[in-house]
Design a protein around this nucleic acid. Structure first.
Lengths: 191, 191
DNA sequence: GACAACCTATCAACTGATAGATATACTTCT
DNA sequence: AGAAGTATATCTATCAGTTGATAGGTTGTC
């Protein structure tokens, strides 16, 4: 038996399916089949699909927050931390050609609930703030160079990575994402 | 009455709906209702949804090719042409918060047919080649500066723009895309 | 009379969602 | 300790609505 609770296993299955097929690309029955229960039991844990979607994003964001905060302690240089962040995204693409959960949901943002959208925004805002913090720290250390506001650069960075994930997925290779990461790091390299 | 043929009006409606809700976010009946015919008639023009999707991408790509080739004649500087390209994307976001058709389909690429995916790749390859050509022309003129292969820079550029479109859409504002465009142009500005 | 472009009518499959029964485990009371 | 009650998590069965798709009839034009 799987040790994890049904709730967790439902979220795991939903996350993977959403990352590969999009939010409208899987059903409660798909989840039920994977988890090994009936679709009514999935509804017991997440009454509506919007509830499930919201829980999905919240968990994804919290997990990302934990990972990034851990990284802030463990990785010494700012550019190292940013590279590791990009590496996390690369792992997602590598594993079954998945897309960032929030990236695919942002693309589908016209087809999801307002609550899901609000939660999504929080994810992007958090990532941007984190990246901006790394950029500023790197600039203070003379390790990273850039002109203009750190926030704008961080947003552009995130856009580049999310966009490159999409392309990588489409071409079934992590090369576009690797290239984009390298190009981007070069933009921020101190002269 | 609308002058355009039913086929064109179906594609117009499908394009808009796909850009806002994704490929799984609209039905043959949605299209029929907008165009003012019955869903069976939509199937007459496009037997399956994959057929429709493929036609959608092909038309979008051909249209983009025409626009970009025209632009190559009309706009004198390379940076001007690239800015105009970004401006085209901005217009899409501004108009009902739409997303680039091929961007949203790339995000959903796990949920579409192999034929659609192949057609999608052609779109991205074309855009990348076009951007790379502009970058090289700009560098020759001393108007644009960058290190490394033009192809890699062009791919990164396209990723940045597509990613920023996603973010703009999510936040319901074209500011992220505007900021990303400006940041990107600054990266390529000749010193 | 042939063809293109539409129509009506219908299909089986799938969708998200609900009502209500059942089983199991933990409290609480005698 | 044992009975009774309660909460949680699952089940079966079913719903109405939507989906992509098809068969076959109708209309209008060259």
């Amino acid at each position: 038996m799987d040790e994890a609770s049904a709730q967790v296993r439902i979220l795991d299955a939903a996350e993977r399916l959403c990352q590969t097929r999009g939010f409208n690309g899987f059903s409660f029955r798909d989840l039920a089949e994977i988890v090994g229960i009936r679709s009514a039991s999935v509804h017991y844990h997440f009454p509506t699909k919007a509830d499930l979607g919201k829980a999905l994003i919240t968990r994804y964001r919290r997990n990302m927050e934990t990972l990034l905060e851990d990284m802030e302690r463990k990785e010494r240089t700012a550019s190292g931390r940013i590279k590791r962040f990009a590496g996390m995204l690369r792992e997602i693409v590598r594993d079954e050609n998945r897309m960032c959960l929030c990236g695919i949901l942002a693309a589908e943002s016209g087809a999801i609930s307002a609550e899901m959208r609000a939660e999504l925004r929080r994810f992007f805002e958090y990532c941007e703030r984190w990246l901006a913090r790394q950029l500023e720290a790197g600039r203070d250390q003379g390790e990273i160079a850039f002109r203009g506001a750190a926030g704008v650069a961080a947003a552009a960075m995130l856009s580049t990575l999310e966009g490159a994930m999409m392309t990588s997925r489409l071409f079934g290779s992590d090369k576009p994402l690797r290239d984009a990461t390298q190009w981007m790091m070069a933009q921020f390299a101190a002269a």
